[in-house]
Design a protein around this nucleic acid. Structure first.
Lengths: 192, 192
DNA sequence: AACCATACGGACCGGCAGTCCGCTTTGTAA
DNA sequence: TTACAAAGCGGACTGCCGGTCCGTATGGTT
């Protein structure tokens, strides 16, 4: 079963689109300010190409996020402490939350775009499911927690992209402040 | 300074629109399935009327929510325990969260519509600010909490409409289950 | 060179939020 | 009762956007 090789023009266009989209989202105040026509034009590509490659708007954004999040995923799945699977739960839970928050801080526009793009709730997204499963399993290694699944959802909710945006924007909270707060909060949830 | 009285036809139309919108949102799977044209048609009213009265889509949804939430607001601002201001913090915090959750469960379509309607993040909405301020003040009456504002945000995030929708829908959690979980979670955050 | 699967691009479509403006209704004052 | 202005009305219209369609071009293969 040979894997059909991607044509060179197709590959070139894919790169151009990803680069253009990334730049556009980074520049724009709100993800809504970036239309698919904008992306196509900036990439020097037709709309048809754009949609055939990525399916729809959500697919495009997901591709961008996926590319950025890959190293983090590796670190969580098979890396060393404090993110890797061998880390003791008490240490790993805050580390996981900090990693999620850190990612959203470093990629605010993308995280926001992904959450905001309506097609289905954020909770259906594959990468949310993965974070949730990982966090839940880690919480399971801890005694005295009522329900690890709900707790995982609740903890992750504290890192929602629009909340991060609000805290950083309207409330003027710094990245460091946020990290400190969520660490303290996680500690509290874990019962010190 | 006389308050210009609302014309009777205007009042009739306002009621018709609110009733029609409420019914439409309740019937539809997703808020996105209800367009402003739909609402106008169902209310037997022109689009112009709709927009002059409510400004925009967000204004319409906000008016619906406001009407429903009024009694709850009263109860929190000047009612008896466990919601009223005289309640001891340890008891009031879970009560407030349960009230928020209960409201979203009882008005899933409206809560979802309000969160989903893009114009500005949910955190800019007047009613979120109010819940946050109330919860923060209550948390301030408690010892040993690192940052009441952040904690209030984090706790409220656990009641986000789309999370509620996900838990009730995809995960099949019952309303009672959810209330129990959030109560336990709140207790945990407060350090028992 | 010949062939065809793959990819390309932009005109096109349906639907939506929000605006505009000529017409109607309502309340009031003569 | 009539006259009149303010308030309200409605639906055609605009601009935009995500997504599709299809005739054309191009890269790989034999």
């Amino acid at each position: 079963m040979a894997v059909r090789k991607e044509r060179v023009d197709a590959a070139r266009n894919r790169e151009a689109v990803l680069a253009a989209a990334d730049a556009l989202f980074a520049r724009s105040d709100s993800p809504r300010g970036v239309s698919m026509d904008d992306v196509a034009a900036a990439a020097g590509v037709g709309k048809g190409t754009l949609f055939r490659r990525f399916g729809d708007r959500t697919g495009l954004i997901r591709a961008l996020v996926e590319a950025r999040i890959e190293p983090l995923r590796q670190a969580v799945e098979s890396g060393p402490a404090p993110l890797g699977p061998a880390t003791p739960p008490y240490e790993r839970v805050p580390a996981l939350l900090d990693a999620v928050l850190g990612f959203k801080l470093a990629n605010r526009h993308l995280a926001l775009a992904l959450e905001e793009t309506g097609s289905g709730s954020p909770y259906q997204a594959e990468h949310y499911q993965w974070w949730h499963a990982t966090l839940r399993q880690t919480l399971d290694g801890l005694p005295g927690l009522a329900d690890s699944s709900f707790t995982a959802h609740a903890l992750l909710a504290a890192t929602r992209a629009d909340l991060v945006e609000h805290l950083a924007g309207t409330e003027g909270m710094t990245a460091e402040g946020m990290r400190t707060h969520i660490a303290a909060y996680a500690k509290q949830v874990l019962g010190q």
